[in-house]
Design a protein around this nucleic acid. Structure first.
Lengths: 245, 245
DNA sequence: TCGACAACTTGATCAAAATCAAAGGCACGT
DNA sequence: ACGTGCCTTTGATTTTGATCAAGTTGTCGA
């Protein structure tokens, strides 16, 4: 997970292009970095900034995805549900990731904001046109897909083989290492997810999540205020408890 | 999962190119379909056919991936392990899928053959050269990554939220719908994985897998001979038991 | 055909997490 | 300030699947 994260940072900082995206009017990220100035201008003419409150659905399961988006700030939950209502969060997307489902009109996922989230959305036809014009863009989308695949597989190990305690610690570690610098640091941050969301991400119940958080608190792995604000004295300790190499 | 499968079949049959790949000397699949005849020839000059026995490692976790490969026949397990030995299979790859990890030299996975498996391997530098020459190839690799991502996320729902019974039924359904036509049909096939492998795929123990298989047998959802040969009277029934829409 | 070994099954018991149930705590509007 | 309602925590009990421990079956080579 660390590697992925470093990789992401590198993508942003090492590029020669301006660090502010014309379309998003925000620092770079997402998909803009691979475009020429002309294409960026083109894209920005079709893009729309939107703010989404927590719980608001971005794209419903089975619905047609009509747009792609860069996440400017916030956290988006990607989830799947079984017919009887059991739910599993299959991915979290943090700023400044790109969000969307290239080349497939049907989304098998529900995407909703976990906290107040700003996105910069593009209609799919514009993106697809730019893909055919700029080979670098498809490469960028491909890398994003591979990154998400890596993260999904890491999480499968967590879901299938870790204990409740390790799962909760692993979750806290992911949040700590993905938190937006404007929202907090790896050692101190607000949880962007409710206990119910955390349970759905970890394949546990709310009660088990709560008990394990209490346990981590009692063992001084973390401190918690208002049930949302987390302090992590030692990330190494958290990793060890989470069974993370 | 069904959609993915149909998609795969479509890729193979709807193309205008010859149905036998010059490099693999086998029916099309993998990545060859997007190449021009010249490029195919180029590729075939650098490709090597290999047979791998079950249990033999294709690529080790953390090792450098030195080649990409089309799977001609057989099944490959992709797995991850924790420091203390707990293991999780994070993906199965069936013929005629493409296998490999574009643009990353470090593999975070172990890939090993589950049964006797034939692959057609290409050195990574050849593939990377062809990617830069043929934009269609990157598109094909991208689609493969998206397909694997979809499958990974479907499986996360299974790992996180299904019961042991549903997990085993879901596993059988996957095998039934991915079995090589030469090896069996959706209604009758040999299991390509041992009980231990199935357990590692489902996040369960061997004993639980065995008990659930026995239960499915007693409920006439499946029949089993020699603990490997499976008959499925009704795929619909299997799907229902597995909680698959 | 036999024996040895591995893979699989079955049974008994245990433990982890789910479920059921009841309090707190905090945020909100009145 | 005072309810009201939601989110979270805590407790008691149950259930599912893990663990421990034999057996049984199947495979393969001598």
């Amino acid at each position: 997970m660390q590697i992925v994260n470093e990789h992401r940072r590198k993508d942003i900082h090492n590029s020669d292009i301006p660090t502010v995206c014309a379309a998003c009017e925000a620092r770079h990220g997402g998909v803009c970095g691979t475009l020429t100035p002309d294409q960026l201008l083109d894209l920005s003419r079709h893009s729309t900034r939107r703010s989404i409150e927590p719980g608001r659905e971005v794209v419903g399961q089975g619905e047609t995805t009509d747009s792609y988006a860069n996440i400017i700030s916030g956290v988006v939950k990607l989830s799947k549900v079984l017919a009887d209502g059991r739910q599993q969060i299959v991915g979290l997307q943090f700023a400044p990731d790109f969000m969307g489902r290239p080349f497939t009109r049907e989304s098998a996922l529900t995407a909703e904001a976990a906290v107040n989230t700003d996105i910069c959305a593009f209609p799919r036809n514009v993106i697809e046109r730019l893909v055919s014009e700029a080979p670098g863009l498809e490469h960028r989308l491909h890398e994003q897909a591979l990154k998400e695949l890596d993260e999904a597989r890491d999480w499968m190990l967590t879901l299938g083989r870790k204990t409740a305690q390790e799962k909760v610690a692993s979750f806290l570690y992911i949040i700590a290492t993905h938190i937006d610098p404007e929202q907090g640091t790896a050692n101190e941050f607000d949880l962007p997810l409710s206990r119910a969301d955390i349970a759905d991400y970890l394949g546990l119940t709310i009660e088990t999540v709560s008990r394990q958080i209490t346990k981590l608190r009692k063992e001084n792995v973390i401190r918690i205020e208002n049930s949302r604000h987390v302090t992590v004295p030692s990330l190494e300790r958290l990793m060890r408890v989470g069974g993370i190499d």
